[in-house]
């Protein structure tokens, strides 16, 4: 169950996406997310979807893994779909059906909104997972640190923030593994986690969370000592193994995304009133 969490995982490789500068990748991902919300017509969504599929192809990450990253959000996707199908008003597809005194109908608008929302969520998760799948956690936090470094001037602790992220990403798998171990141990003593009401379930979590926290604090203390032993003294005067330099492929990627962005806005304007839009 917990193994399904793929957040923050990295799959080493040497695809185009792997080789892009992490700073550029972060900027492009943000642009892309904005794009998803700018796209307003079915046509532009089709274009964005094709573009995303190309990205997945370029990353050489197996589509299975991408689907796996969607799994934890399946509930949200289904929920918004159902909500939109039944609640958006407009032209009904069929006459309202009467079930136990409730009037049910599905509208064209509802159906389209549902499709668009599903696409939006799916694409959002797909691309952000592509970012973490193709960028090593250090490169990612490095990228963020460098992008935010101007904030140092106004005394924002950028390095500390990125160090915290590095460590968090490093320890996510370790803590997940540990949680599974503790759960197995408690189960073997007769605990159940998936039975009873909400309160009973919440109570069943206590014997998992307490040992998990105790161990996390012990880990934190040991890690701090180990970092001290390796001469860590904050961000001042630190150099980095990996040096980043923007090159042709970074600029070409930027131009491509800007082009897709411009095309989307153009479609929005040109097709206004012709093709259904939300």
């Amino acid at each position: 169950m917990l193994k399904d969490i793929t957040i923050g995982q990295f799959f080493p490789g040497d695809s185009l996406l792997h080789r892009l500068d992490p700073r550029m990748k972060i900027v492009l991902t943000v642009l892309y997310i904005v794009l998803l919300f700018v796209a307003k017509s079915i046509v532009s969504f089709a274009a964005v979807t094709v573009f995303s599929l190309i990205l997945v192809f370029l990353s050489k990450i197996s589509p299975k893994l991408i689907l796996k990253s969607l799994k934890p959000l399946l509930f949200i996707i289904v929920f918004t779909t159902v909500l939109n199908i039944f609640y958006v008003k407009g032209t009904p597809i069929f006459e309202p059906i009467d079930i136990l005194g409730w009037q049910f109908t599905i509208t064209y608008e509802g159906l389209l909104t549902a499709v668009v929302m599903v696409l939006r969520i799916t694409l959002l998760i797909t691309t952000t997972s592509l970012l973490t799948y193709t960028t090593s956690p250090i490169a990612l936090t490095d990228g963020i640190e460098r992008l935010l470094s101007p904030l140092n001037a106004v005394k924002v602790p950028v390095h500390e923030f990125s160090m915290m992220m590095t460590i968090a990403l490093r320890f996510i798998p370790t803590l997940i593994e540990e949680t599974e171990k503790i759960m197995a141990a408690q189960k073997s003593r007769g605990s159940t986690f998936s039975e009873g009401g909400l309160i009973k379930r919440a109570k069943a979590l206590i014997p998992i969370l307490v040992p998990l926290f105790v161990s996390a604090f012990r880990r934190a203390e040991e890690l701090a000592t180990a970092m001290e032993c390796r001469c860590y003294a904050g961000g001042k005067g630190r150099t980095r193994l990996k040096q980043y330099k923007l090159c042709a492929r970074d600029y070409i990627s930027l131009l491509t995304v800007i082009a897709v962005f411009a095309a989307t806005i153009a479609i929005n304007i040109l097709l206004q009133g012709i093709v259904f839009a939300i």
Binding site: S136, I138, E222, A226, M227, T239, L241
Partner: peptide, 17 residues
């Protein structure tokens, strides 16, 4: 509890960095 970075070579680089 003494490995700081997720990837082996990045962890080895921690001290010289």
């Amino acid at each position: 509890n003494q490995i700081v970075a997720s990837i082996v070579e990045e962890d080895v680089a921690f001290a010289p960095e």
